[in-house]
């Protein structure tokens, strides 16, 4: 097939998508976040597989549009996006460099995903939730103020050492 001769390879497109930023966490790209799962270029076109973070994430439509236009600008051959829900997105897919970018931006990166635990048992036994270090002063102990934050993927915490409220990426 020559229909796509000269069109960018999957490898080149990974670099292109690494410049597409998440609209709600503009310090991370869709590749950093692990939303882009796969890029396949073959005779039928360019297929990018994405897995949304949260079911109700209002950013996903913007993200898909941004990916599509980035692919078109890069000259990708017949680009299309396929959304796949299984396996479900996990914060473990955020790569280490991206975690450092988050921290530097003032958002605590997610800790390792905890083993699946019954939330009712945790509550009744008063099992402490994992602590999150302060992204500003590095203090090990901070307080959860709200499990829900300004976007679906973040919670709100407070650092008693430097008196700074901050957002923390949820571990899911």
């Amino acid at each position: 097939m020559v229909a796509f001769a000269g069109a960018p390879t999957a490898e080149a497109l990974w670099d292109v998508l690494a410049t597409v930023l998440d609209p709600e966490v503009p310090v991370l790209s869709v590749v950093d976040l692990g939303i882009v799962r796969n890029i396949r270029v073959d005779a039928t076109g360019t297929e990018v597989t994405v897995t949304p973070t949260y079911s109700g994430c209002p950013a996903i439509q913007v993200i898909e549009r941004d990916i599509q236009s980035a692919l078109e600008r890069a000259g990708a051959f017949a680009p299309r996006i396929r959304t796949v829900f299984a396996p479900a997105w996990t914060s473990d897919w955020i790569n280490p460099a991206a975690r450092e970018k988050l921290r530097a931006y003032g958002i605590a990166p997610p800790g390792p995903r905890a083993a699946t635990a019954d939330p009712l048992v945790q509550l009744l036994k008063r099992t402490p939730l994992a602590d999150v270090p302060c992204p500003y002063c590095g203090a090990a102990h901070t307080e959860l103020r709200s499990a829900f934050g300004p976007t679906a993927c973040k919670s709100i915490r407070y650092c008693p050492s430097c008196l700074q409220p901050f957002e923390a990426f949820k571990s899911i």
């Binding site: 796949v84 829900f85 396996p87 479900a88 939330p119 009712l120 499990a147 829900f148 899911i172």
Partner: peptide, 27 residues
């Protein structure tokens, strides 16, 4: 039904937060 299974896997993670929030407030 693989589509339903995929949606359920995602929703289950979200539900864990909802249940914890609801039960915490009931207590």
């Amino acid at each position: 039904d693989a589509t339903l299974a995929g949606i359920a896997a995602k929703a289950r993670k979200e539900c864990t937060y909802h249940l914890r929030h609801g039960a915490d407030w009931v207590l």
